[in-house]
Each structure stands twice: as C-alpha cells, then as structure tokens.
Design a protein around this nucleic acid. Structure first.
Lengths: 228, 228
DNA sequence: AATGCGCCGTACCGTACGTTACGGTTCGGC
DNA sequence: GCCGAACCGTAACGTACGGTACGGCGCATT
C-alpha cells in the first residue's frame, strides 16, 4: 500500500482486517490497478489497454499476462477498489438511543460520501454498462461490496436496537431497505445520469441526520407507529 | 453530411416543456425508432448500426440521413421512448385523505412499474454509460423524463394535500425526495447492476401501499411528527 | 562473465464497426 | 411514359483498438 494516490473515500473507509478477496497482488500490480482506476474515473468505460499501459508505465504484454484480457483488467480493478472501500463497522455495545442514533447517522453519512465520490460513480457506471450483456461479474461485485455489504453491517445494528427495545420492525431486511431509501433517495441515480449535484460535507451531515430521524420516526419503539 | 437539418442540435439543451409530442416524426421514422428501441433492450449499448438497419428494414444511409450519426440515433430513440412514457396525471380535486392516499399509491405503483420495466432498465443503462463522457444528452433526457417529470406531477398533489391540511412539510422538493426514496429504495440501482429482482404486480402494490403509509406517517398532518 | 527471467517499449496483426458510396427499385407528379 | 426524390441493400473504406510478437534492458543467480 505504499503508493496510494489519496482517494476521497480514504476518510470514509476504515482499513478492515483480512477478509480480502485481494488474492496475492504484488505491490507493482496494485500500482497498476490504481493507475487503471484513476484512468477509469477520468475516461469511463472507453479507456483503452494502451492508455492503461502508458499511464501505469507498463507494457501491454504485462497487462494481458496478469489480467488475461480487457474484461479481466476491469474486473480486477473493480475488485481492487472494492477491497478498499468498506463502511464503518459498528459494534452493538452500549445500546442507548443516543448511540444508536449516532451509529445510524454515521452509516448514512458514510454511505452518502461513498456514493457521491467520483470513484464510486465511475465504478458504478462501468458496472451498469456491463451488466446488460454477457458475463456480468462487475455488477455483482459492485452490488456485493456496496449495497449488500452495507446491509450486512447495518442489520446487526438494527437487530441490536430491536433487542434493546429501541427499534420496532418485523423484518430487518425490509427495515434496512427503508433506511437505505431514506438515505440515498434520488442521489445515486441522479449522479449516475450525470446530474451535477454537489454534496458538501454539511449537506451530507444534514441529510444523514434527517434520514436517521425519519427512520426513527417510523421504526423507533417509543415515538413512531410500529410495523410500517 | 449531405444535409444539415437533422434534429441533433435542436431541442437537446433546454428541458422539454410539458407536451412536446415528438417533433415531426413520420410514421416510418417512428417505426424505425421502435425497432431501434427493441434492439436496444435486447442488446444494450453495443447494438450496431447494421443491426438496427436490418431490424428496421431500412438502409444505413437512411439512418445516417435521418439521425446524423450513431449518437443521434441513440438520442432520438431515447427521446422517442421518453415521449411515450408518462406517469399518471392527477388533479387536486376532491381532497380527502382517502383520495390523497390513493393518488400517492398510484404514483408509487406507476413509478415502480416504470423503473422495473425492461425498457426503462435498458434506457437507463445506455444513458448511464454515456453520461460520463463527452456530450451527455442522454442522461439529461432520461432524468428529465423520469425523476424530474415525476416530481413535476407529484408536487402539485403534495401542495394540494398541504393546502387541504392533510400533509405537513416545509419544502415540497424535500418531501418529494423522501417519497421517492421510500418508493424506489434500492430497486433501481439493483436492477441496473444486473440483480435479478422480479417485481410482481402484487409486490409492487404492496410496496406502493407501504411507501405511502410511511410517507403519511412522516408527513401526514394528523398522525406523524411534522417537519421531518 | 554468462545465463535466464521479468518486464518495458513498440511495432504489428486482425477485426469489428462507424461511415460513406453506389447501383437498383419504388413512387408521386407532370 | 419520364423525371427526380426517397429509400433499400450491400459493398467498400478508414480507423480505432484488442490482442500478440519481439527485441532490448536491468537484475538476480551461478
């Protein structure tokens, strides 16, 4: 990880233990993938193998040797970035309304930062573009490390909140999706479709707080109407 | 480059008003665009001009004459479809809670049907794919006829609901985005990324009802906490 | 020093596809 | 019946780019 051109997400993601699907990448390979990633952000799906080679100061032969073909390079790049992006892990200790609220706001804020980052937008664009045809992979990878990873982290928090009598819901999956909707709203699709939509730090914080309060209004045990 | 007056440069920049019925397309041209649209749904962005010509039983020369170039054809196709898709118009008469609820459910249901349709998915895919690079158009067109058109239809309903004392919110735009988030949740991004996710008629109806109830819980004048 | 390996740089090949050109056919107007 | 316009079908052109081959160089091992 010597290299590391600083990505926007850097502040968001917390280097997570092992897990890693990053199967034995040498430093040099990581550097090449970082170069490919930067180019992907700049040029989108129409980056060329030649351009990647030039940017990474490596030969095309090496690219093909390491990644097989263009699709392999793209997949490796997406996975490489995915292995870096992780939303915060929150443990379910010390459960009171304040800490639950803080956790939810944290998740919301992190998620908004991720989906509004240039890197995420570029990755989602290329994944969407490849989703329609042939062997997909990319879409599944992005989904797995994005929306589903978020769910995997958030659900235990929701469950803990329910155990502690702070939340009320029938199905954690449904509750998560409600939270997801309240947080993301139309942001991602607008960004993917090219809508300028600058999210300042302050705006993100405000949206996170709003979404959290709305979610608590719907699923908080004390305040809201239950079961919606 | 024989003649100039293709409609590439015409109406792309400014958002289309309300009724703009597909400027002066002959029946034959509409048929060709329908063929292109069908092919777009099947093959995605990698459809070829040859394939379109063959499918539409027209010559490539005609395609270029009518639509300028590949991008023009794509744009015309997207606009043509966009001119066909319109969510329900609802007038603000007879405002009681029942009719307001029914209207909201209708909007939600219509919207879910739209975004889960093959056509919409294909169109959004190609628009997203083209959004990153160069002259965008497609993303703006899809956005204008999708999310923004929906807002334009729904906001008067929300306003009318507020006037009638049925809803409470500070900003119609924000309220709309909340509703949008509650309805769409993660559906669109998952579909765009290739996630199988079959929405049955029943499921859509259920989701529409749930989203509506949640929205009313947040913004209903009587039940919910105001201002969220 | 010699050998071998991994990689860079670059020239090269094959092909797919956007775009153009052109001959042939239909059709409406005179 | 003739003319021109519009259009179909297809061949041809140009090019960009994915993929491959090859020569040279640094470096490690012997």
């Amino acid at each position: 990880m010597t290299d590391g051109p600083t990505f926007r997400e850097k502040s968001v993601l917390h280097n997570v233990p092992e897990i890693d699907t990053s199967e034995a990448l040498t430093e040099r390979q990581k550097a090449v993938l970082d170069a490919a990633l930067r180019l992907l952000v700049e040029e989108g799906d129409q980056l060329t193998m030649t351009a990647v080679a030039r940017r990474a100061s490596c030969s095309k032969e090496t690219l093909y040797k390491w990644f097989g073909d263009r699709d392999g390079l793209l997949t490796a790049t997406v996975q490489w970035q995915a292995s870096k992006v992780r939303v915060a892990q929150v443990d379910g200790k010390g459960l009171d309304l304040a800490s639950l609220t803080a956790s939810l706001e944290r998740f919301a804020s992190d998620w908004l930062k991720v989906i509004s980052s240039d890197t995420s937008i570029a990755l989602n664009r290329v994944a969407v573009g490849h989703a329609g045809s042939g062997k997909d992979n990319l879409g599944a990878v992005v989904l797995e490390n994005g929306r589903f990873a978020l769910a995997k982290r958030l659900k235990p928090v929701l469950e803990a909140g329910r155990q502690a009598g702070l939340l009320k819901f029938a199905d954690a999956e449904t509750a998560f999706r409600t939270f997801f909707g309240l947080v993301a709203r139309d942001v991602q699709i607008r960004l993917l479709l090219g809508d300028r939509l600058e999210l300042t730090e302050a705006a993100i914080g405000g949206d996170a707080a709003r979404a959290t309060q709305q979610f608590l209004a719907l699923h908080g045990a004390k305040t809201g109407p239950q079961g919606l």
